[in-house]
Lab assay of single mutants.
Amino acid sequence: MAAGGDHGSPDSYRSPLASRYASPEMCFVFSDRYKFRTWRQLWLWLAEAEQTLGLPITDEQIQEMKSNLENIDFKMAAEEEKRLRHDVMAHVHTFGHCCPKAAGIIHLGATSCYVGDNTDLIILRNALDLLLPKLARVISRLADFAKERASLPTLGFTHFQPAQLTTVGKRCCLWIQDLCMDLQNLKRVRDDLRFRGVKGTTGTQASFLQLFEGDDHKVEQLDKMVTEKAGFKRAFIITGQTYTRKVDIEVLSVLASLGASVHKICTDIRLLANLKEMEEPFEKQQIGSSAMPYKRNPMRSERCCSLARHLMTLVMDPLQTASVQWFERTLDDSANRRICLAEAFLTADTILNTLQNISEGLVVYPKVIERRIRQELPFMATENIIMAMVKAGGSRQDCHEKIRVLSQQAASVVKQEGGDNDLIERIQVDAYFSPIHSQLDHLLDPSSFTGRASQQVQRFLEEEVYPLLKPYESVMKVKAELCL
């Protein structure tokens, strides 16, 4: 049975990233139509530049190519590739079939990587351009969430054990800070992308030097003109047959890092959902379990974690691919890159769409948070109580021993009897502590235990987050809708 299948058929496997999760716009960027249309555009740009620099290419040939950029006979191309065992030459023939007058000058002087690699770089750039505003929107939604809850005390956790208090907004800023680093890295790697350009079979530009009869300047002009037509500021000066596969490492490393950030955020949300302090959106008709109707599973956060793990592992592909590119190139890269580049971007696209949807509907339960604080705060307040007693004339050592005994009794009630923490009640009825009984409410005010959390939130948002989001103001209103 021949390899390949009808990918629109229910009898043929289709990647869930495309069929179930990723956005239509990201799927289109990695589609065959987008790819092969870009090949034709690159052939047109090459012909236009070659004509401008004096090669015998007519206006009629150029116009014929322009008129057929979208006229792609995919069936013919597939048949040609089956016959020739070469995808680029299959599309040269297919393009030439609908451009008979231009057929002889299509791909003039070029090698397969002229269309293959340059198209990949265009796709990487455009895919990054799709991700950047999506990530900015996630940051914006979380920034709104953090600002609104900047002063809401909550129990902090280290080692997932109760620690000092923080605020809900401050905790959210930990998430935002990681995503801001990801946004900066995505922008950097996007701006650092260079075009492969017009380089020939081993990167020496020998074929173009021959076409222009040894004119170095025209060869350099050709490279520059096509690079500018493709919208790049610069091209690699040095290439082998391909652009260095280190570029793929750079791009997928940034995406993998984004995956790590999203995994951490969504894990926190899942843990908070278990504590009943916070939940992701839950639709009115949504079913959490087929057997347990009360369940409210954090399905979206779980999906993000599941896909983020996949995204983090994909960076190993370009690392290994770059390491086995012998001399000017081997074909070890080809099949692998067809999979890992598309999957990385479709996965990143999915987790950003999902995280935006989550961040637009996060639900906080202040009463649950308050109750958990009441359970733990008495123990945390013991040092403040000791200091207040010393100020009232008591002995630190005597007070410490009193607190120690009462704390152990209260802990026994919590752990052995399943009761509430009654340390404060014990202190309130103990005559030894009568000098500070009137101060206990103040000493137990949760806001006095959150330090500068709310001020940190305000400063972080104003100095770091809002300036970073400013270039994306025009796209901030787009909502994230999930079908599944």
Rank of each mutant, 00 (worst) to 15 (best):
S12C: 11
L165R: 04
F30S: 04
V254Y: 03
I436K: 03
V429G: 14
V364R: 07
C399H: 00
K66C: 00
T239E: 00
Q161E: 04
K246P: 02
V189T: 05
E425D: 03
E213W: 06
R372A: 05
S9W: 14
E463K: 15
I72A: 03
V475T: 05
R426M: 00
Q221G: 13
V138E: 06
L311Q: 08
M312R: 09
D215E: 06
L130N: 15
L484M: 14
I385H: 03
V364A: 08
I358L: 14
V138F: 15
S9L: 14
V254K: 05
S140F: 14
K367Q: 14
E50L: 01
S454Q: 10
Q416G: 14
E463A: 06
A77L: 12
R459W: 04
P100S: 10
D117N: 06
I106R: 04
D317T: 03
L319S: 07
E417F: 11
I386L: 11
D215T: 15
V88P: 03
D398N: 10
E383S: 11
K224Q: 00
D129A: 08
L482G: 04
E370P: 15
E401T: 15
T267D: 00
W39R: 00
F160D: 06
F208W: 00
N118Y: 02
S67C: 07
Q456P: 14
V198S: 02
G8W: 11
A49Y: 00
S12E: 12
E60M: 15
I373R: 07
R459Q: 12
T242S: 15
K233A: 06
S407D: 09
K66R: 06
V226S: 08
T154Y: 00
S395A: 10
L311V: 07
N71Y: 01
S31T: 12
P281E: 15
F157D: 01
V457H: 12
I122E: 00
H159F: 01
C27W: 13
R149L: 01
T58S: 09
K35D: 01
E228R: 14
Q41F: 15
L108E: 09
K264Y: 00
W43I: 01
M65R: 07
F145C: 02
L468T: 07
D420L: 00
A77F: 05
E48K: 08
P467A: 04
E70L: 15
D117H: 04
L222F: 02
D349W: 12
T354D: 06
P446G: 01
